[in-house]
Design a protein around this nucleic acid. Structure first.
Length: 351
DNA sequence: AACACGGGGTT
DNA sequence: AACCCAGTGTT
């Protein structure tokens, strides 16, 4: 049998965090509810290193809920462009408006009220509450799921509902009586720094004395991998249509679905289809080399076509379709591959 | 319960 | 190429 650990899980974890935890992340400096909220949303399914520059830029433009609520959706999406999962940005914008109207211009600080705001589930709500008020609350993100699956020896894919339920219970069990903010950070740091997916530092782990995976040599097997999901293929034609005066035609995508609300190049089954949908004809049509773009659930093959509009004036423009200056498109939310095409167009690569 | 939803990093 | 990342919302 293993020896009894010297102290409870929470105490060992916090002692380790005091010495080795992360304490200088941008959202830890001035830990306001708003900054914690934005950071938590940006960090959903997104690594810390990727988020930092986006967070800094966001806070310069939208320093508080009021400025976010007042901003246009286009401005908000432009700040999110490249980060992915754009519903997060649309939901932040919508939730900010809701806070202005119904929560006295502030973020509510109960899990019940927070989870009613779009984009905030239970884990994010509890992360916001614990880090804003220092009350202990359980969180269950990717790091914590891995830590708990190993420490408690929980079998099965962590996305399965029975496994989720068990992990929530294990998370609750380990909560400290105080230091809620530090504890939330600590258990996430343990997952990010020591209890990593591969090559974890079990020898240095503060809670290895009673870690079921470590004691039974199952660290490599836990947590169980996610069942493979099939990735579908999708072929897309995109038209880079210039008006002869340095502008490119863009269309706003519908509010739901892939790249919802972002601005994209006109798409269609063929050049003729796209011409017809725009009500114009194009000259100098040149097929460019295809671009592979991977999303979580599909592999897109983009076939870009470069062309000039014969009758640019006849394109019916609106809030959903307009000519944009190639050099000013950083003020617009463009999907990654579209931004890449615009960059190449500006560099003269397509001349 | 299964799937949609991005883009990037690691192994 | 597979797998994962400070998950949530929809069906």
């Amino acid at each position: 049998m293993a020896e009894q650990p010297a102290a409870p899980f929470q105490q060992r974890l916090l002692a380790w965090w005091d010495l080795s935890g992360r304490k200088d992340l941008p959202w830890q400096h001035t830990r306001t509810p708003y900054r914690v909220w934005v950071s938590e949303i940006m960090l959903q399914q997104t690594q810390v290193a990727t988020v930092i520059s986006y967070f800094e830029r966001w806070m310069k433009s939208f320093p508080d809920i009021s400025s976010l609520a007042k901003a246009s959706l286009d401005d908000v999406l432009a700040h999110w462009a490249g980060l992915g999962y754009y519903a997060r940005a649309r939901n932040l914008h919508k939730a900010a408006a809701s806070c202005m109207e119904r929560h006295e211009k502030k973020l509510p600080l109960s899990a019940e009220e927070l989870t009613e705001l779009p984009g905030i589930g239970l884990s994010t709500a509890n992360a916001i509450v614990s880090q804003s008020t220092d009350q202990p609350r359980a969180v269950l993100d990717g790091n914590v799921r891995r830590v708990l699956a190993r420490h408690a020896g929980v079998e099965g894919w962590t996305g399965q509902s029975a496994v989720q339920k068990r992990l929530w219970a294990e998370a609750e069990k380990r909560l400290p009586d105080s230091r809620g903010a530090d504890y939330t950070q600590a258990i996430m740091d343990l997952g990010a720094m020591l209890c990593t997916r591969s090559n974890p530092g079990c020898g240095h782990c503060p809670v290895n004395a009673d870690c079921q995976a470590w004691l039974t040599d199952r660290v490599r097997e836990l947590p169980s991998p996610k069942p493979a999901t099939r990735v579908s293929d999708k072929k897309v034609n995109m038209l880079i249509l210039t008006n002869g005066r340095g502008k490119v035609l863009l269309e706003r995508r519908p509010p739901t679905g892939v790249w919802g609300g972002l601005w994209c190049l006109p798409e269609g089954d063929s050049i003729e289809t796209i011409e017809a949908s725009l009500g114009i004809s194009a000259t100098d049509v040149t097929a460019l080399p295809p671009i592979e773009h991977r999303l979580s659930h599909l592999r897109m093959t983009i076939h870009p076509m470069l062309a000039t509009a014969c009758d640019a004036m006849q394109v019916r423009c609106s809030g959903q379709r307009d000519w944009y200056d190639k050099r000013q498109q950083q003020t617009l939310g463009l999907p990654k591959p579209v931004a890449e095409l615009m960059k190449r167009l500006n560099s003269g690569e397509f001349k």
